[in-house]
Computed example of a mutant assay.
Amino acid sequence: MQKFEKADTVFDFSDFIGTKYEGALDQVKSLYTYNEAMKDYLHQYKFLQDVALANVFAGEIKALPMHGIVVPIPMHPEKLKERTFSQVEELLNHATIPFQNLLIKATPSEQGKKSKKERLEAENLFELIDHVKATHYILFDDIYTTGATVHQAAKLLRDAGAKSVEAITLIKG
């Protein structure tokens, strides 16, 4: 745990000013920054399918103030089949955080292979699969890199009637 670095709390949303995603997301909080130790952890957890590693951060995730409906960022069904588990849902499950699956990832494209500009210009990756209430939502994801993923999901929730949307991620890339 000593090798993981706490993330700062400042997020720059200036890339979203003037885009269709401006104002969709109220705030973002990340627990850790993406350093070598976190890179190794993420590789072991996600790509080597070591699902037991979801326990590493369970206590910290459970202690986060989550006052609203928690919505995990979903994987595309093909990616889920390949990985065998949803890393985001497992983090929430191990922390015993209740959540609702309101989104599906309709586009199989991997964000990590796109430039920041391509991510910001991409069509929304998600579709709604359930009703959105006029309340507060908390998107939960494993990593915030450019912010495009959580901004796209937030816009979809806002457009469907969400009162406010924030995001929490384990890692700030």
Rank of each mutant, 00 (worst) to 15 (best):
E118V: 11
L170D: 00
R158S: 10
F140R: 01
A52K: 00
V132M: 08
G68F: 10
P98N: 12
V28H: 04
Y45P: 02
E121Q: 14
A24P: 03
T19L: 12
P98D: 09
D15S: 15
F85C: 09
K117L: 13
E78C: 09
D40N: 14
M38N: 02
L31A: 04
P108D: 15
D130I: 14
L157Y: 04
M66V: 07
M75P: 01
Q2M: 13
E60W: 02
D12Y: 13
K29G: 06
V28W: 03
V51H: 01
L42M: 07
K79I: 00
G161D: 05
L53F: 00
H151S: 06
K39M: 08
R83G: 01
Q111C: 14
S30I: 08
M38F: 01
H136R: 13
I143G: 02
S109E: 10
E123A: 14
A63D: 00
G59E: 11
S109Q: 13
D141C: 09
Q49E: 00
Y32W: 08
G59I: 13
I104L: 15
I138C: 10
Y144G: 01
A148N: 07
L92D: 00
K29N: 06
A7E: 05
E121W: 09
A58R: 01
Y34I: 06
D50E: 08
F47R: 01
L25C: 06
E110N: 12
K114P: 08
D15Y: 11
I61W: 02
R83S: 03
E89R: 13
Y34Q: 04
F126H: 05
Y45T: 03
Q152S: 12
I129R: 13
L128H: 05
E121I: 10
H151C: 10
I69S: 02
D130Q: 14
I138R: 06
V88I: 09
I69C: 06
L102E: 06
L157R: 01
K113Y: 07
S109T: 14
K46Q: 00
L102Q: 05
L91V: 04
Q44E: 10
I143F: 05
L120N: 06
K62L: 14
L125G: 05
Y32E: 02
A54C: 04
G68Q: 03
V150F: 05
A160M: 08
P72M: 02
N93G: 05
K3W: 11
A37S: 09
E118G: 06
K46Y: 00
L156H: 03
S14D: 05
Q44H: 10
T135R: 12
D130F: 14
V71R: 04
K105Y: 12
Q111P: 09
Q100A: 15
K81G: 08
A162V: 05
I69Q: 03
L80D: 02
Y32I: 09
F13C: 09
K62E: 10
N55I: 06
F13A: 11
N101I: 15
H131I: 11
V88N: 02
D159A: 14
T145A: 11
Q2Y: 10
Y41F: 13
K114N: 11
M1S: 12
I104E: 11
H131G: 04
K3P: 04
D142K: 10
K117M: 10
M66Q: 09
E110D: 08
G18F: 12
K3A: 15
T145C: 11
E90C: 08
P65A: 15
A37R: 05
D159Q: 14
T96V: 14
K81N: 07
Q100S: 15
V71A: 10
T135P: 03
L80E: 07
